[in-house]
Structure formats: structure tokens, C-alpha cells
Design a protein around this nucleic acid. Sequence first.
DNA 1: GCCAGTTATGCAAACCTTTTGCAATTCAGG
DNA 2: CCTGAATTGCAAAAGGTTTGCATAACTGGC
Lengths: 172, 172
Amino acid sequence: MSKCSQRHHKHSHSHSCNHPQSDLSELTAKLRKNARKITGPRQAILDLLRQHPHPMTNKEIQAGLPEGMCDLATIYRSMHMLEEMELVKRFDFGDGTARFELVHEGEDGHHHHLICTVCADVVEIDECFQQELEDAIAKRHGYQAVTHKLEFFGVCPECQEDAKKAREKKGK
Amino acid sequence: MSKCSQRHHKHSHSHSCNHPQSDLSELTAKLRKNARKITGPRQAILDLLRQHPHPMTNKEIQAGLPEGMCDLATIYRSMHMLEEMELVKRFDFGDGTARFELVHEGEDGHHHHLICTVCADVVEIDECFQQELEDAIAKRHGYQAVTHKLEFFGVCPECQEDAKKAREKKGK
DNA sequence: GCCAGTTATGCAAACCTTTTGCAATTCAGG
DNA sequence: CCTGAATTGCAAAAGGTTTGCATAACTGGC
Ligand SMILES: [Mn+2]
Ligand SMILES: [Mn+2]
Ligand SMILES: [Zn+2]
Ligand SMILES: [Zn+2]
């Protein structure tokens, strides 16, 4: 049953369901294992996330879904569940609203971002500091199961340009 | 970075790293420069923060002040202002509530924490990954004024113990 | 010291994001 | 199909944070 999406609204985005049935099958599998149900909203959310390369807020997710397809409360509940089964990863850009990104098959989704403090542009960062640092910190303080959250912030090239222009105009 | 005390152990409140009149004078200086007023609440907040080695939430700050001395709204406004003049640093432990820590004289306050996900114990971490990583990321994407937020999470020794006991009792 | 002008505070209401209770609806498995 | 369990929508409640406004507290200059 590789029906990509069974309830996609007509004016849905021109998205093509050319994904390797990965998520859906992974979803159904994990869901069944926990006696959870495969519902329209859940599939739609996963479908939407699959098309987005960066973390999305719950509001953005709702806005990206066909009008009126899913209540915000349901999205909140879904994201909790998807996070629990590790199909999505939660990120915090420090603005007080959670963001979620799809975890690709096999991976654990751990990675970081570089965020423009002016326009909120996001760059995916796959590098990380040496594991030794974390290990040393964990050992030194006797902590176990240590992990970390790390995000970079700065001003993107475009916003640097904008700032420059504004400066010139003002100085003129 | 903060040399006051490298490793704060749990309940290390009673510790005193006397940073003399530093804050107050620094405060008055910076305040005056911006035509702001030196008020009771602001001094009290700074005084309180000076005695705490870890970030505090606004509620904790209010609770730590003499009963009824300061409205919560005032604390929020004060923290914004103190942050602005770089007398305090804001931290985000990912639980949706901001925390503030006093910035010691001369320093910029940039550092990290190791937080127990069970009991919320906090360890101050003065190390950081090599600057080269951040520089490389900034350069690669053309970003400027790049900085980062980093926090570590894990289970502290005591909570590991608790978990072990619980396991034994259950397995009995 | 005292005044005037400005900045800060208290209080209550507004805002936002996130969570929850509950009745109605949808799923899954038989 | 049927039926019980899981899920959803809706509205209300929670938290944390911000704001408008009248009142109170500072400060620099007399
Ligand atoms: Mn990402
Ligand atoms: Mn700290
Ligand atoms: Zn930008
Ligand atoms: Zn702990």
C-alpha cells in the first residue's frame, strides 16, 4: 500500500510523493508496535515535514496543511508522539517556540543549525565538536547518557548587505 | 572564564566568591551612562544573583527577594535591561523558562552548563569546543558575528543511584 | 534640601505557546 | 460491518512573558 497520501486536498502543494516510502512504512511499523493508529493528520504531518529541509514550528505545520485539516492541539499531540518514536527531532532556536524536523531513516537526527538573527534564515550544520569534549565533561562530573544541544547564531550574507545599504543611505 | 569556582557541587549555595563592590559600581556606572536610574529592585536583584552560582529564573529571583519587594513584571523588565547592558547573561535550558546569571566583571559571560535531566542539578562548564569550528562554519556560509548556544544534558551521579535502587527494589 | 521632569514600578489585562478535559469521531481487528 | 480503544476538535486552562496606565521613585539642577 504505497499510497503516498490518501487524503491530500486538491489545492495541495505541487509536491510529488516520490519519497522512498520510507517514512510511511517506518511510521506504520512503529505505530503498530505501540498500538497507535495510522491517522490522516499523522501521515499528512509527516508528508509535510518530508518536504521541508529545516525545522518547522507547529503553527507552520498547521499552515502548511490543507486548510482546516488539523487542529493545533492535534499537531501538538502528534509531535509529542512522533518525537517519542523518534521520527522527528525537536529543536530550540531560543525564540520560545519549538521546531521539529523529520529524522531520516537510520539516523538519529542529531545535528545543529546556523540561524540568522536578523531574517531567521536557517543553515543546516552537520559538523560537531569532537566527541572527546563531551566524554571528558561527562566523566569529570560523573554524568551518564550525556548529550547536548548546540545552535549557532549570526548574520547571514544578505542581511549584512541590507545593513550596509542602510548605513550608506543614512550616512549620505 | 568564570574563575570564581570551577566546579560547583550540588547545594553549593553557601559558597561565597566575594566579588566586592564590583557589581554595584559597575551597575551605577553603566546605568548613569544611559540615563537609567539606580533603584532598589535593581540593586537587590544584582545582589541576589551575586550569591547564586547558577542561572536563576525570574520566579526564583522574586522568591529569593524579600517578600513583596518586587513585582514579577519589574523583574522581567529589569532582566531585559541588565541583559542589554551585559551585566547578566540569559540561558535557555530548554524547559521554556529563561534563566539569568550574573556576568563577572570584565568577562563576557559566555559559557555552558551540564544539566541533570532528572533532578535539574546544574554544573558550570567553562570549556568549549575549538574556536576553529565556529570560524569555519561562519566562513563557509558567509555569516558574520557568529556565536553559539550550547548546553549539555545527562543524568547526575545521584540520580543514577536513585535509578539503580529503584531497579533493584523492582527486580527483587 | 526641594522641584520638575523623567524613568521605574505595581497591578491587571493581554499575549503566546503549549497542555488538557471531554464528548464526538475514527481506526483496527475480529 | 461491529465494537472497543485510540484520536480528534473545541474550548478552556496553564505557564511564561509583555504591556498599558496611573502612581511612585530617582536625579540633576536650583
Ligand atoms: Mn536541521
Ligand atoms: Mn553558568
Ligand atoms: Zn539573515
Ligand atoms: Zn540529577
